[in-house]
């Protein structure tokens, strides 16, 4: 070593590594990333269209097999909910007691229920009420819950305290007892009172999830960074917090959809949900459950239809959640 050690010198070298003259190390930087994420559709040049999370998510969804399968399934269910006569020619309310609980027969592929009604026709016609209740109640609970929960989580303080206590009150209402009390005073024979009741009891669950994930998301530095730039609450909430907090809400909401359809069945079984002559899977499942050993086909078909519907929505929720996460692309 001809030169004496100069600690300062060495320290400075650690900061300014040999050869990092500026442009060279930047070039290395770039070469490395190019290698890490090779071309493909990501490599749109400067002339390409500006892309956003939503357009990228849509681009991703169109190529996702899970989204295509669940989308087609939901499309099919919606079509038969609107026009059940497309695939079922009989009257769901035409029953012959002589055929009570009989199995499969030509022209009656799903057999007959206790009242002697055609199970196939009733399953097809039941889609309308069940899907209406399931989808509307889920949408209502998810919107109300994420709105109030997100608001409570984002603004905190008094808002949080008040909204959380209100949610706790609704959380504490027993479903069956509450249903008996609320719905027995309603005389309407449409699905809307049931939808309303389920939304009323369902939103606190979504609100808690939304509140929690909003609180987690708003602590991130990028929210602070937006605030330091001068962003208002609306921008911070919509652009930064909401997209990063929505995933758990989607998961819980799609799972809740199945619960809501079965809740409708429970309420119908108690005589306060949908009333005859409305046909729904829930009513049929409730009627079939005690007869499971004599005539399992009565339970199998409406329950199967319910399971497929729930599965389709869960898959859809999954695909949407994944598409909204750029890390999974």
């Amino acid at each position: 070593m001809p030169e004496a050690y100069d600690p300062q010198e060495i320290r400075r070298q650690a900061i300014t590594p040999a050869g990092s003259g500026g442009p060279m190390d930047l070039a290395m930087d770039e070469a490395e990333t190019l290698e890490k994420t090779p071309g493909g559709p990501e490599g749109t040049g400067p002339t390409g269209k500006p892309r956003s999370l939503w357009s990228d998510a849509w681009h991703q969804l169109r190529r996702s097999p899970i989204f295509i399968v669940s989308g087609l399934l939901i499309l099919f269910l919606v079509i038969i909910a609107i026009w059940p006569q497309l695939i079922a020619s009989r009257d769901p309310l035409f029953c012959q007691l002589s055929k009570s609980q009989q199995g499969m027969q030509p022209g009656h592929p799903f057999g007959f229920d206790t009242q002697g009604c055609d199970v196939y026709t009733r399953t097809v016609y039941g889609a309308r009420a069940s899907i209406t209740v399931g989808v509307c109640a889920t949408l209502g609970a998810a919107l109300l819950g994420s709105l109030l929960g997100g608001f409570a989580g984002f603004f905190g303080g008094v808002w949080d305290a008040v909204l959380s206590r209100i949610a706790d009150v609704f959380f504490g209402i027993p479903v069956v007892l509450g249903g008996l009390v609320f719905l027995s005073v309603v005389t309407s024979s449409t699905v809307w009172p049931v939808v309303g009741f389920i939304v009323l009891l369902g939103w606190p669950q979504i609100a808690r999830i939304a509140r929690g994930s909003v609180i987690t998301a708003k602590q991130n530095d990028y929210v602070q960074a937006a605030r330091a730039l001068g962003a208002g609450s609306g921008r911070m909430l919509l652009r930064h917090v909401a997209p990063n907090a929505v995933a758990p809400v989607i998961v819980v909401a799609t799972i809740a959809l199945g619960t809501y359809i079965s809740l409708e069945a429970t309420l119908s079984f108690l005589g306060v949900g949908l009333r005859p002559p409305t046909v729904s899977w829930g009513i049929d499942i409730s009627n079939a459950a005690p007869q499971i050993r004599n005539a399992p086909h009565m339970l199998l078909y409406p329950a199967g239809a319910l399971s497929i519907t729930v599965l389709a929505f869960i898959m859809l929720g999954d695909a949407v959640r994944d598409a909204l996460d750029p890390k999974l692309r």
């Binding site: 956003s52 999370l53 990228d56 991130n220 990028y222 730039l229 652009r239 930064h240 990063n244 750029p326």
Partner: peptide, 15 residues
């Protein structure tokens, strides 16, 4: 944590 994972670089710098 200071860059929003759900925004493109263009959106982050353009914000």
């Amino acid at each position: 944590t200071s860059l929003n994972p759900r925004m493109t670089v263009g959106d982050i710098i353009g914000e």
